[in-house]
Design a protein around this nucleic acid. Structure first.
Length: 482
RNA sequence: GCGAAAGUAGCUCAUUUGGUAGAGCACGACCUUGCCAAGGUCGGGGUGGCCGGUUCGAGCCCGGUCUUUCGCUCCA
């Protein structure tokens, strides 16, 4: 049962995902759309199972966490308050020789500092003033001319061989309103968190929550990444599972540690070994955070972030107070005081978690058979509780009344979990097909079943078989998936 | 965005220098069988990513484009 890591593993996983109906390139008949993917029959079920497991662990296992489902569209001012409008729409320029990319304002300001060093303070002041005027008008041609006229060169290549200036805006925009005259630019949310912050008081009051408490949410978010790559790891449309935990100011350190440890426990609860995970502390913090850590997993292409835990302070709620002119405060009856709560955020990418599960489960296994020959199989060791199919029900033959018995079992079990029925092909081949989609259990109905009411149950990972009573099948499977 | 490589059946890949495409597995039907990818017969499936050029003739040569992977870059 050894893993077979190789340069081809990632390619093999992508092929497997497509061949068995987990993930397809989007709009494939039109050549696909860059970095957009669709989830197929088994993929959508697996994704839903991961989401449901997260949701259950958050909202069901924690009495002080409740869920919401906020809209993707939000009032445009939301993104001014959050810092997304101003922070992430900077014009950029590339040097063609060094391939180095600069923020235009950084490049020009750097040049101005050099002028000051040379004693030309007036020249520096003028160029910065010119830049500000051009930036205010979004005059990219003028900015490029400013760079060229002042002979600003790249620090790496030393040349002035520049591309045109481009604006990279992180957020996708569209228009709300029927006609252009009263059209209002609105954005597709680049993170789900803001839907939680703006609903803070609604939730706190209606669910009668007392601090500390959390609000959980899953949903799509959209980021116009300059480069989106590596299969479903970085997509422009993706799904987040976020929980914002509201706490008393000053207690953020302990809650940050609490959630850091709780979230790692969640990952390990899926049976993934600890050596595939590591924490990565942020040195450079985002504008909203006073501490941040990534949970990284060793993908076939290296350790990469799956989840982030951020201590967001009172940044978001305070900003929304300022921009909305509405108080977003909590009255703490223990200390008889109003305050803006601090927030610890846990934010995990569902698509990344999906890829993690797929990467961790995929194995090309070589089997040594009793007669000395070897055989191979591709198996997905999916955790039973999130596998798309839980149980395959296979009559050994399609006659002698075996299909009828199998269908009775099917009817009994399918109300409780996903079952798969098949009578085609030899039994070994049917087992292997289930291995490839990660079904943890197969039961075979044979002639002996008619005599003594027992069946063979076959375990995916060990390939071992044992006879159990037909009527115990359902409870055995349930015991493994709950 | 820059650079490199690739794109032929659902998947993995052949098709030696240009002469209108094949295999294995997979898929469907039937027969034989019946506890770890069994055998047989038959069958479905490809305007060779797409567009254009050169040529009597292009999967193969040339240009463009789309998509993917890798390296830079980017990633609050």
């Amino acid at each position: 049962m050894s893993k077979t890591p190789s340069d081809n593993t990632f390619q093999a996983i992508i092929s497997h995902a497509k061949e068995y109906g987990f993930v397809f390139p989007s709009s494939e008949i039109y050549d696909g759309l860059s970095a957009v993917y669709d989830y197929g029959p088994y993929g959508s079920q697996l994704k839903k199972n991961i989401r449901d497991y997260w949701w259950m662990c958050m909202t069901q296992m924690n009495e002080n966490i409740v869920g919401i489902d906020a809209a993707i569209f939000m009032h445009p001012t939301t993104w001014k308050a959050s810092g997304h409008v101003d922070g992430f729409s900077d014009p950029l320029i590339d040097n063609k020789d060094s391939k180095k990319r600069y923020r235009v304002d950084h490049l020009i300001e750097g040049h101005a500092e050099k002028l000051i060093e040379k004693g030309d303070a007036a020249g520096a002041e003028k160029i910065v003033a010119d830049m500000d005027a051009l930036l205010a008008n979004d005059d990219f041609d003028g900015l490029k001319k400013l760079i060229e006229d002042n002979k600003i060169h790249c620090a790496v290549s030393g040349t002035g061989n520049w591309t045109d200036i481009r604006q990279f805006n992180l957020m996708f925009s569209t228009e709300l309103g029927s006609v252009a005259e009263d059209a209002n630019t609105i954005y597709l949310r680049p993170e789900t968190a803001q839907g939680i912050f703006v609903n803070f008081l609604n939730v706190q009051k209606t669910a009668r929550m007392k601090i500390p408490f959390g609000i959980a949410q899953t949903g799509k978010a959209f980021r116009n990444e300059i480069v989106a790559r590596q299969f479903i790891f970085r997509m422009r449309e993706f799904e987040q599972m976020e929980m914002q935990f509201f706490i008393k100011p000053g207690t953020q350190k302990e809650w940050y540690e609490h959630w850091k440890s709780e979230r790692m426990k969640w990952h390990l609860s899926l049976g993934i070994t600890a050596d595939k995970y590591r924490f990565h502390d942020h040195v450079k913090l985002a504008h909203y955070a006073d501490a941040a850590v990534d949970i990284e997993y060793e993908f076939p292409f290296g350790f990469k972030e799956v989840e982030g835990i951020h201590s967001r302070t009172d940044f978001d709620l305070t900003r929304h107070q300022e921009f909305s002119k509405k108080k977003l405060q909590y009255f703490d009856t223990e200390i008889n005081q109003h305050y803006v709560p601090y927030v610890i955020e846990t934010s995990i990418g569902l698509d990344r978690m999906f890829l993690l599960i797929l990467s961790n489960s995929y194995e090309e296994e070589t089997i040594n058979k009793e007669d000395g020959t070897t055989d191979s199989r591709v198996v997905l060791h999916l955790p039973a509780r999130i596998a798309p199919n839980k149980l395959a029900i296979l009559p050994l033959t399609k006659k002698d009344g075996l299909p009828e018995l199998a269908k009775e079992l099917m009817d009994e079990c399918k109300k409780s979990f996903h079952c798969f029925y098949e009578e085609k092909d030899a039994i070994g081949k049917r087992y292997r097909r289930q291995d490839a989609i990660g079904t943890p259990f197969c039961v075979t109905i044979d002639h002996q079943t008619k005599e003594d009411g027992t069946v063979t149950i076959r375990y995916r990972d060990s390939m071992l078989q044992e006879r159990i009573e037909l009527k115990k099948v359902k409870e055995l499977v349930l015991a493994h998936i709950s």
